[in-house]
Amino acid sequence: MTTAPGQALLTITRRPETVFAHGHGSWLTDEGGKRYLDLVQGWAVNCLGHSPELIQRALAEQSARLVNPSPAYFNRPMLDLAERLVALSCFDRVFLASSGAEANEGAIKLARRWGSRQRGGAHEVVTFDHGFHGRTLAMMSASGKPGWDQLYPPMPGGFAKARLNDIASVERALTPATVAVMLELVQGEAGVNPADRGFMRELRALTTERGLLLIADEVQTGIGRCGHAFAYELYDIEPDIMTLAKGLGGGVPLAALLCREALNCFEPGDQGGTFCGNPLMAAVGLAVVNEVCRPDFLADVRQRGGRLSLGLQAIVRDHGLVGERGTGLLRALVLPHDRASDVVAAAHALAPVGLLVNAPRPNLLRFMPALNIDDAALDLGLDLLRQALRETGA
């Protein structure tokens, strides 16, 4: 008698009983030999697909040289990655971390440290309804996911909420204690909701006028996901602080907090972490950034994003769905009912080839394929999606 997998794991989510054994590019294979076309890629983490040679090589070469000398010392990959990110962006300083939540916590700490020095102790941060910034206590409180700010009471305070694309709601949320406004330029967990260009221009102008910091959470949108190195480039604005993770490591745990020189105000000991800036992860990040942030690679991402969008629009027309939306290769399909989880299950069960998609909302499917997915795999994914929709009557 076989035992269901996961009996020794703490229950944190519902998982199918599939156990994956290996992956390559856009494909995963389970222990039974069934293949799955993966349009989730670890929630936009595997920007170059599963187990790319570039990452294998970076890990092998760096692990043979130096793994972790402690964050108390410099190492060459740490320095090189920081310099590369500065050269690509509008920022001057970089702090390397291991997860998006950790980077976002660092952004709040930095804003509050700056507020204590430059704004008379201002510490409140305006965030947005339906936003998502991570699963630490503070980042759950900062997030706008319904009920999250009360899940583990007492929760950290200091986060006021506004509505995305509603500048008046931001103005109402501001107080003399406000130090910053923090948002995702595309709300991923909320269902791929992009900020409007006009709203972002107004928000940048408002924060500048009031002397507030603008923090861009680009954990999901950064490193090519939206067809540019960073999504803020789409809006013709420059934030004061930005956070990165997910695609930055291409599958390994790596994150970054970037800021302008004027915000370089941590005192020694204020911020850190055992694995922050370790050379093993930094070497991978540098290899990933150098590959993804080439102009020709980013142009291809924009082309593939357009192809995926057109394919999803055709599915909307043929199946009578509500619509599709997104930016680059971060896209969503809106259903006319709350049966997205049924479609996910049906897609997973397809034979002989399964399809992996994500349902962040009951009526919505999200797509985050590898940035280098080829046209044949994209078209196959759309065909498999149509099959799953038919099988569920969706």
Rank of each mutant, 00 (worst) to 15 (best):
L10R: 14
T11Y: 13
R14P: 00
T18V: 12
F20A: 02
S26Q: 07
W27R: 07
G32A: 10
R35E: 13
V40D: 15
V40H: 12
G49L: 10
H50K: 09
A58E: 11
F74D: 15
M78L: 14
L81D: 12
A87T: 09
F95P: 00
S98M: 13
E105R: 13
A111L: 00
G115S: 11
G115F: 02
S116V: 01
S116K: 06
G134E: 10
R135H: 09
L137G: 01
G147I: 13
D149I: 00
P156W: 02
P176Y: 02
L183M: 11
L185Q: 06
A190Q: 13
L213N: 05
A216Y: 14
E218I: 04
V219I: 03
C226Y: 06
L234A: 12
G251W: 02
C259G: 11
E267L: 15
P268Q: 12
G269Q: 06
G272A: 00
M281P: 06
D296V: 07
G305I: 07
G305M: 03
R307L: 14
I315N: 00
H337K: 10
S341N: 11
D342C: 10
D342P: 10
A347Y: 01
L356H: 04
P362M: 10
A370N: 04
L378R: 08
L389R: 02
